[in-house]
Amino acid sequence: MTSIERTAYPRFKRLITAHELHLFFSPTREEAAWAAERMDADGHQLALLLALKSYQRMGRFPKPDEYPEMVVDFVRRAVELPEGTTALWATGRTAERQRTEVRRRVGATYDQARARRIAEESVRKEAAAKNRPADLINIALEKVVEAGLELPAFSTFDAMASKIRGEVNASICTGIHDRMSAVERAELLRLLEERDGDGTTLYNRLKKPAQGPTWSHFKNLTRRLEWVDGLGDTSVWMDGVASGKITDFAGEADAADASELRDFTPVRRIALIACMAHKARMRVRDDLATMFCKRIATKIKKAKAELEEIRLAEREIVEALIGTTAPCSSTSTRAALPRSPWRRPRP
């Protein structure tokens, strides 16, 4: 069962601030007069006002035990009912008549069959791409609210999302299974049985992450890519499957070991391993590109350092040559130099 806290299903918060109480649960004078006209007893008036304000806030009628004491006490004091007044909740036809009065006042439509139909259509459509039940429930809630309909119970949404999600996932797994050849299916199942050099199954080889960017690791990663590619063309297997579904199925396969996967039905087992292989092919290619870039970056960094060393050495040589061949600047030194015999005397 999906936790209601993980969804957007409207409910009372555990902690309601004074600002929220005044903003959402404070009855107007018109609403207080409306409740007084329809109910004689103070307890019934309080219950009707609680149902009205809750419906305005949440689009549904909470159960009597859902109302926080602070909300009940705030509404009672807001309409100046006597201290100690408790909400008297009607049952049966009387309760239904009161709910009809509330719906009429807020302009809501009560059509549970239509609300369930809208929710089911939206869940079935989105289940082809999304896998988390909470996400499916939130989408169904949004569509029902947009239609201006009263929300069904949370259990209705939860059961619907679980059922449709299972049907859609089974259909996706069957499609992946049927797009594979018998040889390819046998090759994937072999991963759960055969052992690698370290004693683990070949299936665990699909999970191994890339190591440091060394030349030996690069060669090992290249061989792993060849091995994964040899399992089959996973892009054909995943034709028409949403990337989110592939990621979720691969994550489910990654969280399980070989012995746990053997407990799955054959179709689902093969589909999960196929998604794992598809993600492994993508990851190995990404790791190869990343490792290649890191290796090139290391070479470039080393080359730049060597080039700087050469530049500094050349600079020292040039400076030494300049120091030994520069013309003398003092007059005495120039006078001491021998006169060239080919130089004409000044007039």
Rank of each mutant, 00 (worst) to 15 (best):
113 A>K: 13
331 T>L: 15
214 T>A: 00
32 A>I: 05
42 D>K: 10
289 A>R: 13
230 G>A: 09
60 R>I: 05
208 K>S: 09
57 R>L: 07
40 D>G: 12
189 L>T: 01
264 F>T: 00
156 T>N: 06
335 A>L: 15
250 A>E: 03
90 A>T: 07
236 V>M: 05
253 A>C: 09
281 R>K: 14
254 D>H: 15
242 A>K: 09
162 S>H: 11
298 T>W: 05
155 S>L: 09
181 S>V: 01
292 F>K: 14
58 M>N: 03
90 A>V: 04
60 R>S: 07
226 E>K: 14
297 A>K: 10
222 T>R: 15
275 C>G: 08
208 K>Q: 14
59 G>I: 03
142 E>L: 08
113 A>Q: 13
311 R>C: 01
245 K>Y: 10
185 R>V: 01
22 H>T: 13
66 E>T: 04
212 G>I: 00
187 E>M: 13
151 L>C: 06
165 R>I: 01
277 A>Q: 07
104 R>D: 15
183 V>K: 12
35 A>G: 05
54 S>M: 03
174 T>W: 07
287 D>C: 02
100 T>I: 01
51 A>N: 12
39 M>I: 04
189 L>M: 06
82 P>N: 04
34 W>Q: 03
232 G>C: 04
319 E>Y: 09
273 I>M: 15
319 E>S: 09
16 I>M: 06
214 T>V: 01
190 R>C: 08
74 F>Y: 15
121 E>C: 02
275 C>Q: 07
